[in-house]
Design a protein around this nucleic acid. Structure first.
Lengths: 149, 149
DNA sequence: TCCTGAACCTCTAGTCCTTGGAGATTTAGG
DNA sequence: CCTAAATCTCCAAGGACTAGAGGTTCAGGA
């Protein structure tokens, strides 16, 4: 029997986040004391650890929802979990590829900067003119959605 | 003199986004027609291209604000712009490093999956127990903030 | 000149995943 | 029994957009 604060410390997930997970149905509603405070048991900690770990690995909340329901049915075939993980891996790789292009671009920009006045600054010049770029880092219309996380 | 739609198409920035940039002060308020529609000139396009390019490169709106004010004062020393870009580069590198750890972890998880039942699934087992991880991909308390670009 | 339909306007609210605060209540320890 | 810490609920913010409703303006053609 532990309080939400103890659960929070143990799992490394902030208190409001735990309540949020409950609200969106990732965490089950725990027992309450007479005074309406949440009391958790070991199973809650395991589940929260699972969630945090999956979030650390970049899984979306929706993916985690799927993984949790798979976990709940141990006799179900495992390829669904495998596919979710593989999708996530592909996602992570795409993000790495994109960030590497940005890295190259930024390296170029920064290294060229001679430390003069803003009027001749390479950083500013490059940002003002895409044609000065060394790589094609994309003219994506939703550039960052792909990279966040 | 171009409409917001033309500006949007030319710069590759969605119309509501342009209005949003105006609202937060990244873009200046343009002239209006008698009927209250925005009309842009070349300078607006240049500025919007600058902004989009910087966003593509992962700069935050706040960083862009700084860069734009530097651009407006060509005689100012350039090291501020350089520092902003260098900070951003460090940021991108940190994200890459983090994502590579995730990649390694996910590769491990996925490759180990024998395609059996969920009860023995490696994906699920690893998520349930951090100790099974091959790398220390961090117990960060704000795991994804560091990675979203 | 009028009409039509596309593009524009403002305003509000939603996205995602938390995080923080206000103000009230409960709990555990001394 | 008292107090301080922790908890409760509810609401709002963050970043950077995105989407919709409901209404107006523009440009081209008949």
């Amino acid at each position: 029997m532990m309080t939400i604060g103890k659960l929070s410390d143990t799992a490394g997930v902030k208190v409001p986040t735990i309540r949020y997970y409950e609200e969106i149905g990732l965490m089950p509603e725990p027992e309450r004391t007479e005074g309406n405070q949440r009391r958790y048991v070991r199973a809650h900690l395991d589940r929260l650890n699972f969630i945090r770990h999956a979030r650390d690995l970049g899984f979306s909340v929706e993916a985690i929802r799927d993984l949790l329901s798979l976990q709940a049915t141990p006799d179900a075939p495992c390829h669904d979990a495998d596919r979710i993980a593989a999708d996530n891996l592909a996602d992570v790789r795409a993000k790495i590829a994109r960030l590497k292009k940005l890295e190259a671009e930024l390296e170029h920009i920064v290294s060229e900067c001679a430390g003069g006045r803003a009027g001749e600054c390479n950083v500013l010049a490059t940002l003002a003119d895409h044609a000065l770029c060394v790589t094609n880092h994309g003219h994506a219309h939703n550039p960052l959605d792909n990279v966040s996380n």
